[in-house]
């Protein structure tokens, strides 16, 4: 039988949520939102975050985004055309609720996206250079394959389930890393910590 593979979905909800949370952090966190009575901003902000993710990560057109989110093309254009730097100044200048227009939410969403992307790029660059270094010194194949398998994974990893699936099938000294992942301690903050914990657990199991 030939192998035919269907889609492994990248869920936009997850990334939009992450950008939204980052935007809240930029605004000063939940407490500040309550203090300044800015809770009514949140729906516009959520929409803007989702639109930015669809544009920047999914390469969707204005038309596609408007249709997918049920907003007008003009709103999408306003979100995308907003000036991030000006938005920061406005936020610092104690903006009133009425002044929080689409373009302000857009600017904030774009700022948050930039920050989230920077973190993702840093993780990817780290995983890449670790993989290259391991390949160069002909390090253990299970470590190389682990780094390849966890690409795109969010750190910190809080639960074993997130790892189990990705590492299933990678063998090291006769053990399946998907199963070994179940026995690790969580959270795992970085790819380096993951390799360290896997290595220690493998050593322990081989000695047992």
């Amino acid at each position: 039988m030939m192998v035919v593979v269907g889609p492994v979905r990248e869920d936009p909800n997850k990334l939009a949520m992450k950008v939204f949370m980052k935007a809240l952090e930029i605004l000063g966190g939940p407490r500040k939102l309550i203090e300044y009575r800015r809770l009514t901003w949140l729906p516009s902000l959520m929409t803007a975050c989702y639109a930015v993710v669809l544009k920047e990560f999914y390469h969707k057109t204005t038309d596609d985004i408007a249709r997918e989110l049920g907003i007008s093309e003009g709103t999408v254009r306003n979100i995308m055309a907003s000036d991030e730097e000006a938005v920061m100044k406005k936020i610092k200048g104690e903006l009133t609720e009425e002044e929080f227009k689409t373009h302000v939410a857009g600017g904030l969403a774009k700022l948050a996206w930039r920050e989230v992307k920077r973190r993702v790029d840093e993780h990817t660059a780290f995983i890449e250079s670790s993989r290259e270094a391991l390949e160069a010194v002909e390090g253990p194949m299970w470590a190389v394959r682990t780094l390849m398998a966890i690409k795109g994974t969010d750190f910190p990893i809080e639960r074993a389930e997130a790892l189990e699936e990705k590492l299933r099938g990678i063998k090291a000294y006769g053990f399946d890393l998907g199963e070994v992942a179940r026995e690790l301690e969580y959270p795992i903050r970085t790819p380096a910590e993951l390799l360290r914990k896997l290595s220690a657990k493998l050593k322990e199991k081989r000695g047992a």
């Binding site: 593979v5 889609p7 492994v8 979905r9 990248e10 999914y58 394959r145 390849m148």
Partner: peptide, 15 residues
């Protein structure tokens, strides 16, 4: 959805 295509390719390449 390009991210879905790339995630699928990453799965195929490593698997």
């Amino acid at each position: 959805e390009l991210p879905t295509l790339l995630k699928t390719l990453a799965h195929v390449i490593s698997e």
